[in-house]
Simulated assay, not measured.
Amino acid sequence: MKIKSLHHICIQTECYKESKEFYTEILGFKVIKETPNFHKREYNTWLKLGEIMIELQTAKISTNLNKWSSLNEGPVHISFLVEDIHEAYEEIKSKGYNNFKLKNEKEIYKVENGYLFKVKAPEGTEIEVRDQQEI
C-alpha cells in the first residue's frame, strides 16, 4: 500500500453549532457539505481549508459521547503550521476566542525549532498552531 496523503480528520461533537463556528469563523475552514439526518446523526459536515479536511459530526441520536481527554489513547491534538505565530494568535484573540492552553503561564511558548500555542475547540479537541515545520 502506498499512502498518498491524509484524507481527513473526523471530529465528533455534542456542541455542533459552537464547534462549526470555531472551525469556520475562528480557524477559517469553509463548509463544503452539510448533511442533516446522516446515518442516525443530526449532522455530518465536511469542512475544508486548503488541502486540509475535517469531517465534523454529531453523535448518533440518543448516544452520549465521552468528554475529550489527553489521557485517551489515539490522537492527542491536531497541529497546523502558520507563517507568523504571533499574527495567528492575535487573529484568534481578535475574534473573541480565548480558550488557550497555558505552559509555564504563557500562551505562546518556545519549542526546539520555533514557537507554538495551543487552543481548545468547543468540543475539547486540542489545536496546536506552530511556526516551524522542522521537528
Rank of each mutant, 00 (worst) to 15 (best):
T45F: 03
H8W: 05
I11C: 00
N72Q: 14
E91Q: 10
F29R: 02
L6Y: 13
E42S: 13
I9A: 09
E51N: 14
P36H: 08
P75N: 02
L65S: 10
K67L: 13
Y23G: 01
K40A: 14
K103A: 10
V31R: 05
F38E: 08
T45Q: 03
I54V: 13
F80A: 01
E73Y: 12
Q57L: 14
K30V: 03
K67W: 02
C15K: 06
E55W: 00
I61L: 12
I32D: 10
Y43H: 14
H7R: 09
I61V: 11
E107M: 02
F117I: 03
T35R: 08
K93L: 13
I54N: 01
T24A: 07
S94C: 05
A88L: 01
T45C: 14
E51Y: 09
I26N: 02
N98M: 09
Y109I: 12
I11E: 01
Y109G: 06
V76A: 11
L81N: 00
K67T: 07
K17S: 11
G50Q: 04
K110A: 14
E34T: 02
E18D: 13
I32N: 09
V76F: 08
T63H: 12
I108F: 06
I85R: 04
K33Y: 04
Y115P: 07
I78L: 11
L56R: 01
L49R: 13
I108V: 12
V31C: 14
P36G: 07
I85N: 00
E18K: 04
L49E: 13
S62V: 00
N104A: 10
H39I: 15
K48A: 10
N37S: 15
N104K: 10
K17Q: 14
K95D: 04
A88D: 02
N99F: 08
Q57R: 09
A59P: 01
S79G: 15
L81P: 00
Q57M: 14
I52A: 15
S94I: 09
S62D: 08
K17G: 04
Q12M: 09
H7I: 06
M53V: 12
G74D: 02
G50S: 04
N99V: 06
S94K: 08
T58I: 11
F117T: 03
N99I: 08
